[in-house]
Design a protein around this nucleic acid. Sequence first.
DNA 1: CCTAATCTAATCAGGGTCCCCCTGATTAGCCCATTAGG
Length: 169
Amino acid sequence: STEAVATKCRRSRTKFTEEQLKILVDAFNKKPYPGYAIKQRLALEVNTEESRIQIWFQNRRARHRFLKRPEKNLDLRQDRAYPEENIQGVRDRRCRTSYTSSQLQTLMNAFMENPYPGIDSRQQLAEDIGVPESRVQIWFQNRRSRLRIQKKREPEEGSAQRQNQGQDL
DNA sequence: CCTAATCTAATCAGGGTCCCCCTGATTAGCCCATTAGG
């Protein structure tokens, strides 16, 4: 098995310089849950894609979640508990991407071909439909997730159309 | 080895359409998610 995709699967690792890390760590200490505007500004300041900034914050939070002092292990979420104090607008998210039907068609076709596209495929796809690669990646994640849920909800369709008792909850 | 990249599951939230549904965006992950590149 494993016909090992010839093309590279993962995006190559981003290597941050010390300066870049200093800026990021500084921002993280100020605000471990930055909104979109802050992430965008950091991306500019550090000269990296915003998606890399987002991943960096995710990974750092994961690492620090348990690195923190055990006596106060609820700190990371404090920031979310008091949204009033946020300098930046509360709940500052990236704007929803709205796909056209032809863009969706392209994504669907690619999904049926391979629901786990590597970086090269995603980038090609992103270029084809004119959307950032990070959005394509999210689209595939959500698509896979919802397909799983749907399959779970409808266990089988081809066989066994009789017994269907007590499956709720 | 360290940590960026990736994954699943759950949840928040925008927008259409009529108050619920679809789906994009964000987050956590707990013997402390897993995988793998440099």
